[in-house]
Amino acid sequence: MSGAEYEKTRANTVQRKKDRATYDKATVHGIVRAGHGICHVAFVDEEGMPQCMPMIGCVDDRSEQGEEVWMYFHGYTSTRIMKALADPGTPMVVTCTLVDGLVFALNISNHSMNYRSAVFHGVSYPLPAGDRAAKNHAMTCVMDGVMPGRWDEARPIDETEWASVGVIRMKVESARLASSPAAAAHAYLFRSAKIRKGPPGNDKNDVANKDLTARVWSGILPLRVVTEPPQPEPFCADRPVPETVTGLELK
């Protein structure tokens, strides 16, 4: 892995429809930024069971053109994933996917999705114990990757919060980006779900701090997916778009 591209390896080389793959670092890393840092981190737990967890993460911008590429993810130090990836060299895989559109074909088997999917292969590489500067850099990267500039604007992390939040550092060994169409999928099995909604969970002491509330804005910036106008094939451009398509439009 050198310069602006990832080397092709057995793990990351796209075998089917190779023309849809790219190994350009800036393009691959851009998917994580465009996806607001929402990644899925896969690993094998202490019982040998495969696990995949949604996490907020980022690619360290300092590694954009370097030999080594790092990714950071944060979470509570007591969680299973933190414990499972505490040993240096533990294999892990990270994916980030953006869905750009639904593809309506003339037959069922050709229906698909337009998407962008980045896949990173690597190993856990824990931060040095007690290295506050390294942890501070990693957490700043994650915050700025999702909400640029917020790290310097909001209240700093206090000592209790600092101790409870851990950082997973991944050394990326290979990566790729593949784009549309995705394979068709017709059934999903949900074992469990975790949902976060509602207003920020501000500390009572912070809400009572008039200087803080006067200086720092707090609230929600809702995000939503919208659809562009349907783009028909030339042979049906003169016909109305059917309700099976228009009924899925989001405005």
Rank of each mutant, 00 (worst) to 15 (best):
I108R: 12
N12Q: 03
V207I: 11
K25I: 06
A133T: 03
A21M: 05
S109E: 14
S180W: 12
L223S: 11
D45R: 14
C58H: 06
D203N: 04
E64F: 05
D211C: 04
H186G: 10
G30T: 04
C39L: 07
R20M: 07
D24M: 03
I195Q: 13
G37V: 09
V216N: 01
T227A: 06
E64T: 03
S180T: 11
I81D: 05
A134I: 01
G30H: 03
G198N: 03
S164M: 15
R150F: 09
T90K: 09
I38P: 00
S63R: 05
G201I: 08
E68H: 14
R33D: 09
A138V: 12
M170C: 08
D61V: 07
P229Q: 09
D144R: 10
G201K: 13
R196W: 03
E47C: 07
A34T: 05
D87H: 13
G247Y: 02
A34K: 07
V119F: 00
N209P: 01
M82Q: 12
V14G: 01
M92W: 06
P181E: 06
A237D: 02
V32A: 14
I157C: 06
A26F: 11
G247I: 07
L221V: 15
M147W: 03
M53V: 15
E228K: 14
V69Q: 15
D87R: 14
Y188Q: 15
R80V: 10
V245N: 08
A11L: 07
V167S: 11
V142S: 10
D203K: 13
A129G: 05
